[in-house]
Design a binder for these strands. Structure first.
Lengths: 240, 240
DNA sequence: CGTGAGCTTGAGGATATTCAAAACTAGTGG
DNA sequence: CCACTAGTTTTGAATATCCTCAAGCTCACG
């Protein structure tokens, strides 16, 4: 369970958070100052896209809020490649077979860095470079898990896996049950899981009727039976 | 077009390759020696699995040959998460929702490192640490492209995308056309693209009948019309 | 409250799967 | 060198899951 959407709303606080996450708290040395002068601080409103300044690769540090990284295929098809929350570092490729855009799910405070220069500074600061490597490997791990989900799981397994994985990141305990306040819409979930909104909806109702979850409003989901969800997530287990 | 399956077959050559790739050629300093004493050199025959020594995360450096990283979901369903070729560094998580195994597609020379200790040494060698970060980000980029493919593309688009992406890695030019000698079976391709062998087969025949590719034997594929393949790959383009 | 976007539900249809069998490779031994 | 075999690949027919299209409903916001 991670630190949630603490309102941050400020350039100073955003840099502080960046220093704590990427520089092990050293908020006064020369590397820090160089990172600071390289960064572009932005406040992004919910629904807006992080502007694509130049045509270079970028790192975006998310100081507060939640975002989605969207890849576009031909025919306007969109795939949500990842969701991000406070303290996440997002790597955004400039170009490729698919166009990438980072969109805010909630109001966000972000720091935007050009990748090349960022990595040059990082090379003088092993802690930061190690942090980049660690985070990249972790993102890779998440992406691989998603590949399994997209390649081999049924609609129901995808929803169950999504709920479990999301609970780990932004779930909170309330009266014994795990409660999620999802910042993303059904369409975002569908685009993330390779489904349609209709299918997502249907699976939510099915899980509800099975007594595994309860929903209230558009965004709140209570996980009533986590073991039951895991059993239906298609995850590999020794007992399978 | 990368350096292909140069037979390497030897512990010394494997370490040399590792040094060239990860230490910018410095094959005599202390970090190199520490990496060397940490590594386990192995020759793996085609079809065999890289043994899962202990229960820790591992890095595998592939000095020669080709491998696939397979994730297992429940019910024996397998997803090929990535293919690797000479000089690739593979990060293998110990545990998680899905079990990971690295299997050799051809005979391989590999170096196996425990991740934790590897990263500790890397922290004293910025070049290596930067290389880990660079490679992890590149692997992440590939995995994201795969997520788009698995989430939003038709069977035909998946095959076309696969052929184009694979040509970039191991394609060779022969009399004007690009020729692939695929080290993986139809089942491997299917498990990589989230399809069945039957569907892969059918799409190969379709592309053959369209005159976009020609095949001979099990493994050789000639790309006769790369522009045509790109047009059918579902990739985002401005003209879409 | 009223309005509109987002969510849910239903019926019909398409793509890829499943099941089954034939054809082809590539390796083996006569 | 050819026949033989085991495994892989290809082809075919029937089925299932998820998608598409369409309509009603709900929630969140003004």
């Amino acid at each position: 369970m991670a630190t949630q959407t603490e309102k941050c709303a400020g350039e100073a606080q955003s840099f502080e958070r960046f220093g704590a996450a990427m520089l092990s708290g050293k908020v006064s040395d020369s590397a820090y100052l160089r990172f600071q002068s390289l960064a572009a601080y932005r406040q992004i409103n919910a629904g807006e896209t992080v502007p694509n300044m130049d045509l270079a690769d970028r790192f975006v540090f998310l100081a507060s809020g939640a975002t989605k990284l969207v890849a576009e295929a031909s025919g306007g098809r969109e795939q949500v490649v990842a969701f991000h929350f406070a303290d996440d570092l997002v790597s955004i490729p400039a170009r490729g077979p698919h166009g990438y855009t980072l969109r805010a799910l909630t109001d966000c405070d972000i720091l935007v860095f050009p990748s090349l220069e960022f990595m040059q500074i990082a090379h003088t600061e092993p802690v930061t470079l190690g942090e980049v490597a660690r985070r990249a490997l972790h993102a890779l791990w998440r992406c691989r898990e998603k590949a399994v989900l997209l390649g081999r799981k049924t609609a129901q397994e995808r929803i169950a896996s999504f709920l479990i994985a999301t609970a780990r990141r932004i779930g909170s305990i309330e009266r014994g049950a795990c409660v999620l306040s999802l910042p993303m819409s059904r369409r975002d979930i569908a685009d993330s899981l390779g489904l349609t909104t209709e299918t997502v909806s249907r699976q939510f109702t099915d899980l509800r009727q099975m007594g595994l979850i309860a929903t209230s409003g558009r965004s709140e989901v209570r996980l009533l039976d986590i073991a039951g969800l895991v059993a239906r997530s298609g995850n590999f287990s020794i007992a399978a």
